[in-house]
């Protein structure tokens, strides 16, 4: 699915053209990269090259900006993002064990994606819902007061088939 991403979608091309038509067009690099990342889940290399050429920003500078921010990723993310809050409240209520259990279930380390491309496991620093600690977020759905025993049930609707059957 990711190998055929070789050209920027038309709407992002048009967005770049609009940015460049105004003053300081090159200062829109981050919003442009955000659009690419939001569309594809990561920054495919051919598109970074295309952004650089279209915005006339040397490629080394584009990757310099992209590698500075943790938000941007150069490798494809899974279809679903599983985020464990590691903020103080969640941490004291066992988020570490939750994260360990998820690593075990999915067979990946933090920041990695399962081989079937279904899940990417990440951690976050406080999501601001401390009353529900510990918290796990799958895509946009928040699950509060999670225990290690809940995890398989939480992942099931997203296609999780059980430990060892993925990844």
């Amino acid at each position: 699915m990711t190998d055929d991403i070789h050209a920027l979608p038309q709407d992002i091309v048009e967005y770049i053209d609009r940015c460049l038509a105004g003053p300081h067009g090159e200062s829109y690099l981050i919003p442009v990269l955000q659009q690419v990342q939001n569309r594809f889940g990561y920054l495919p290399r051919p598109l970074m090259d295309e952004v650089a050429h279209r915005m006339r920003i040397p490629t080394a500078k584009v990757t310099g900006v992209a590698t500075f921010y943790h938000f941007f990723s150069f490798t494809p993310r899974g279809k679903h993002r599983v985020t464990v809050c590691m903020g103080t409240a969640c941490f004291v209520r066992g988020a570490g064990k939750i994260l360990d259990r998820l690593k075990d279930l999915l067979g990946v380390a933090e920041g990695e994606t399962t081989a079937d491309g279904l899940f990417t496991l990440e951690s976050a620093r406080c999501l601001g819902t401390c009353a529900l600690a510990p918290v796990v977020v799958v895509d946009d759905a928040l699950h509060g007061n999670v225990t290690t025993g809940d995890l398989e049930k939480i992942l099931k609707p997203y296609g999780f088939k059980g430990k060892g059957e993925t990844g």
């Binding site: 290399r45 970074m48 650089a52 040397p58 490629t59 080394a60 500078k61 584009v62 990757t63 310099g64 590698t67 500075f68 921010y69 150069f74």
Partner: peptide, 27 residues
């Protein structure tokens, strides 16, 4: 030429060509 730029952040900050490519594959 602007082949070189500071890539990554903090302790990982490094001067390198785009994509951390080898010099031979850079501009």
């Amino acid at each position: 030429v602007t082949n070189l730029s500071q890539q990554h952040r903090g302790f990982s900050n490094v001067v390198a060509p785009a994509f951390d490519d080898p010099m031979a594959d850079s501009v």
